[in-house]
């Protein structure tokens, strides 16, 4: 049941932090947004997050570093990377380290929703 699930958005861009929660709440999700990876780690949302939308390039801890930190903490949160720069090797890397998907901005809402549903559903 995806309704009411918590989605966490970590992105240093203000537009993203405003637009994604507004979009996703239309589909019944609860959304929290963070401007840094550190802020997310320090929050009380980590264990409750059903799906993490994660930017790659951020000042301070990068998206990749956060992914590794969560793995080290054995926090198995499904991660969908969102990035402004298409980079095949980066995509391959994050997928190999367990990410569910990596989307390139700008992406359509349909693509994002499908990806989130698949992430929360989990591996078949």
């Amino acid at each position: 049941m995806t309704q009411g699930s918590l989605i966490s958005v970590v992105d240093d861009d203000e537009s993203v932090r405003e637009s994604l929660p507004a979009l996703l709440s239309q589909f019944g999700y609860r959304v929290r947004a963070f401007s840094t990876a550190e802020a997310f780690l320090e929050s009380d949302c980590v264990s409750e997050t059903a799906c993490l939308l994660l930017d790659v390039a951020m000042p301070g801890m990068s998206g990749l570093e956060l992914q590794r930190a969560l793995t080290r903490r054995q926090q198995a949160i499904p991660i969908i990377f969102i990035t402004a720069c298409p980079d095949d090797s980066l995509r391959a890397l994050v997928l190999s380290e367990g990410a569910v998907d990596s989307l390139v901005k700008p992406f359509s809402d349909t693509v994002l929703l499908e990806s989130i549903k698949a992430a929360i559903r989990g591996p078949a």
Binding site: D13, S15, V16, S19, K105, P106, F107, S108, D109
Partner: peptide, 8 residues
């Protein structure tokens, strides 16, 4: 970034 924001 802003374009993605516009679409969303």
């Amino acid at each position: 970034q802003p374009i993605a924001g516009i679409i969303t």
